[in-house]
Structures are given as C-alpha cells and as structure tokens.
Computed example of a mutant assay.
Amino acid sequence: MHFDWQFFWAALFTPSDPFIDGLILTIVISVVAMSLATLLGLVIALMRRSRFPALRWCSSFYIWAIRGTPLLVQLVLIYTGLAAVGLYQFHDVSLLGLSVRAAVQAAIIGLMVNESAYIAEIVRAGIDSVPKGQFEAAASLGMKPWKVMRWIIVPQALRVMVPPLGNSFNGMMKTTSVLSVIGVSEMFLVAQSISSYTFHTFEIFIVAAIYYLALTTIWTFIQAGIENRLARQLGIEQRVPIIQRLTGARRSVATALPTHG
C-alpha cells in the first residue's frame, strides 16, 4: 500500500462536485444551526433569570438534560425516535426554491437544541459578569427590565460572551461530521463515500481534515476581528497574536486607550 500523491493533490485542489456540495452543506448547517441556537439559548438564559419558579425549573432541567446526553443520541432520537413513536416524521420540503431534505432539517434542529443549552450558560455567565449596580441604577431611573437588558446589560455582557460563542461555533463546524449517522451528505459522509469506491481512504480523509482545518482557521480570523472591534468600542486596545489564537494559547494584552478632553 502506498500513498497516491496524484489522487491527493487532485482531491485537494480540484475536489469533485459532491465534495464541494458537502463542504457548502457543512457551512450552511453550521451557520443556520448556530443562529437558531443563539436565539434559543438567549431565551433559555432569560428563563433562568425569571421571577417565576416554573420557568426557572424548566430552563434548568432543559440545560441539565441536553448537556448530560450525547449529541449522537439526540440526533437519532429527533430523526428516528420521533417517527418511531408516531410523534413527528420529517419530510423533504421546498424552501425559497431549494429542496431541504428531511435529514438536513433534523440535523439543524438537533444541533440547535444541543448547542442552545451551552449557549444559555454562556449568556448567563455574561449577564452575571455585569455588576448588579448597573441593574439597580437603571431601575432607579424608571427603565423597564427589557430596556435595561437591551440597552445596558447585553452590550456590556457581549464583551464576555463573544469569545466562548465563537469557540462554540468553531466546535460546531467540526461536530457536523457526526451528522453522517442520520444520512446527511455533509463533507465527512461524502469523503467516506469517495473512500468506499476509490479505496484511497487515507488520502481523502487527509483532504477532508485540511478543509475542516481551513474552515476553523478562517473563522478564527473572523472571531478575532469581532473581539477586537468590541474591545475598541469599549475603549480597550486588544492585541492578541494570531498564532496564540490558532493554538489556543490565549494571552490577551489589553491597555486602555488614551482619552481626549
């Protein structure tokens, strides 16, 4: 057995149409699922801060149950389990002229549900990082709770929430590889299919790994831009070498910007 360099370079620089489709599907599922998970996670986090015990209990149970069970099990339960007990069966639908397969719908919902439990904790930690005096000061001015949250608390909490949210999205793009278990033709399943009929297993999976690495690296740059922009808006100059971001050795150097006046 030898490494087929010709096949490897061809697969890397001129990937087949199915592989490109799998790459695009991986990105689309990740973006859509993360967007929905962020909205749901925000709702769950606000429920945990509700003055109604029933809402706090429901949100706590949701986070405990979702974080305590594997994503793989959740995907199978959503896609196959619901249909098996007659509660709901996914069907292919047409959306904006595009056909969305049943497995893709289940994948997005599964990732959304799983990630929202973690995002809810990120949001909670971000809100808790804002001094309670901010709440009290806003309340003394007669501001309604939702206005306090929208205009005072959330903008300050974003500075704390963005890094872990970005890391969650980074992880989700890699986690999409498990969607093959319910038949989603994302990049990993396409690579597996190519491997089965070309017998170039090592070569094609190295190519897939390189593409996953490229996706996460691109997002690392985007996340760095978002974090630095937020830092500048708060009057902080943040310089973090990109190598430290890529390797995970985060060591922020932050200095206050000079004020003029």
Rank of each mutant, 00 (worst) to 15 (best):
H2V: 06
H2A: 09
T14L: 03
T14Q: 10
D21E: 15
G22M: 00
G22E: 05
I29E: 06
S30E: 00
M34H: 14
M34G: 03
S35P: 06
T38R: 05
L40V: 03
G41S: 09
G41P: 07
R48A: 07
R48P: 12
R51V: 15
R51G: 14
P53F: 09
L55N: 06
I63G: 07
P70Q: 07
L71F: 07
Q74S: 09
Q74C: 05
L75Y: 01
L75W: 00
Y79K: 05
T80Q: 04
G81C: 08
A84Q: 13
Q89I: 03
H91D: 15
V93N: 05
V93W: 10
A102V: 13
V104Y: 01
Q105S: 10
A106H: 00
I108E: 02
I108R: 00
G110H: 02
G110D: 03
G110R: 10
L111E: 01
E115K: 04
S116Q: 12
E121W: 03
R124A: 00
G126F: 02
I127P: 03
D128G: 05
P131V: 09
K132R: 12
K132S: 13
Q134F: 07
E136W: 14
S140A: 12
S140T: 07
L141G: 09
R150F: 09
R150M: 05
I153Y: 00
A157H: 01
L158G: 01
L158M: 02
R159N: 11
V162C: 08
P163A: 04
P164F: 02
N167T: 10
N170P: 11
M173K: 06
V178S: 04
V181P: 02
E186I: 04
M187N: 01
L189P: 04
S193A: 14
I194T: 06
S195F: 00
F199M: 05
T201L: 00
F202T: 01
E203G: 04
A208D: 06
A208M: 05
Y212D: 00
L213D: 11
T217C: 03
A224C: 08
E227L: 13
E227F: 14
R229D: 12
L234T: 08
G235C: 03
I236N: 06
Q238Y: 11
P241D: 07
P241K: 06
I242R: 14
Q244M: 08
L246E: 09
T247M: 02
A249M: 09
A249Y: 14
A249Q: 12
V253N: 14
A254K: 07
T255H: 12
T255Y: 13
L257A: 09
G261V: 15
